[in-house]
Design a protein around this nucleic acid. Structure first.
Lengths: 227, 227
DNA sequence: CAATACTGCGATCGGTGTTCTCGGTAATAG
DNA sequence: CTATTACCGAGAACACCGATCGCAGTATTG
């Protein structure tokens, strides 16, 4: 009936009694991020991270009560890479669009962010991000819940475009005829439009980033000054 | 240099030589979907599915070359639950919005869809869906790549709203004070706007579905008749 | 100083995806 | 009609995973 707090963020980093811990959450998190950056999220196992830290898997559980906790820490750590020192202009659309751009950049730097099993519980860095976004929306007449939803939607657009850009970058290096992966199940008679559309999109057409910017601005203007 | 096709969809379901298989991909997929529906995606293990089919884990690899294949099959199977027999009206915005609504319904019926590690490779059912969406966009003057991107964006909105609705439904049954999970790392002094916004969003405000419909229509009108 | 509460960590448990192998079976080739 | 060939089922095993337990050692508290 009186169980412990459920997220990493309200569990104390360490107790006050025993010997000083030889490592810190930040250190472990940094190592885990490094592992994920080079080997993908699947490579982030307790054993792997422990090995790179020169310790045993069991020791990590002094700092983290589960693997999911570690993933939350990782997500929050890279959230801290988003620059929040950019001054706000006062135009909510412009400010949020710029923020979204920087957030997408972080997703491209750490593609494993999109593989996180469940949307991570925001930590202090994520809260800073949210606070910044809310400050950008301050000039608005939106109700408070609507502001949160707006930010959520922008974040959704970020992950959406980040996903397509990452996929595009990953498919880029392969031979074009072999990597018809998305059209594997397309049959020309049953799916004429699909085959036509797939055939007509060989080049990376134009920079998806400008499409992203335009999209975000359009959605934001619609939301901010609409009803 | 000459390796086998990489997706389930172009691997033959069975060979022509040996004894008839005792099961089919469809049967295994159906069982796996059932497992996921009641136990979440984590419950879908080869052993679990095999046990429910009354066989051993190794046998499943006659039908599926990896667990990821099984997940692809599952995703495509539930894609088939989206009704594609609804006649098109000729209004792309209206038709795509209606389609998106039905797609979101499917996501709510199978919440594990959002937990899929990577966006699954579309199968025949997914292709039917894509073909239908492209037919809806036929009256448009959009270029072919732009049509695919539009559909991708609508799908993104579907997953986005499905995620929030699922989360809301899951959090609904808990006591309101204990389940302040999202605000676990919010500190009132450092994040005044966040705490204010979180405090002001207790009720489920209004139906998110109408917000979804409005959002999709707005985005679509902007994309379809804009440049 | 004694009690206490912590840390590090080897050993271990139950579970996972996947492969090997082998006996049996059905379609095909000669 | 027989021999070959390619397939199917499945038991056993491998390597790895997340997580727990218990114990020796250590710093803080009373």
């Amino acid at each position: 009936m009186e169980d412990e707090p459920t997220t990493v963020w309200n569990r104390p980093e360490r107790g006050a009694r025993g010997p000083a811990p030889e490592r810190s959450r930040a250190q472990i998190t940094a190592e885990a991020v490094a592992v994920a950056d080079e080997g993908g999220l699947a490579a982030v196992s307790m054993r792997q991270v422990a090995r790179r830290l020169g310790t045993g898997p069991a020791s990590l559980y002094r700092y983290v009560s589960t693997r999911a906790d570690l993933l939350d820490l990782m997500a929050d750590a890279v959230s801290g890479e988003i620059d929040l020192d950019v001054a706000l202009t006062g135009d909510p659309v412009e400010d949020l669009a710029a923020l979204a751009s920087r957030a997408k950049r972080t997703h491209l730097d750490h593609p494993w962010l999109l593989d996180l099993p469940t949307e991570p519980v925001p930590g202090p860095r994520g809260m800073d991000y949210l606070e910044y976004a809310l400050r950008a929306l301050e000039p608005t007449r939106l109700a408070h819940p609507a502001r949160l939803e707006t930010i959520g939607l922008v974040n959704g657009l970020v992950t959406l475009f980040a996903r397509t850009e990452i996929r595009r970058a990953a498919t880029e290096g392969d031979s074009p005829s072999r990597t018809r992966v998305p059209g594997a199940a397309a049959t020309p008679d049953r799916h004429p439009l699909v085959t036509a559309a797939l055939a007509a999109s060989p080049g990376a057409d134009q920079d998806t980033h400008v499409l992203f910017e335009r999209m975000v601005r359009r959605v934001l203007t619609g939301l901010v000054e609409g009803p």
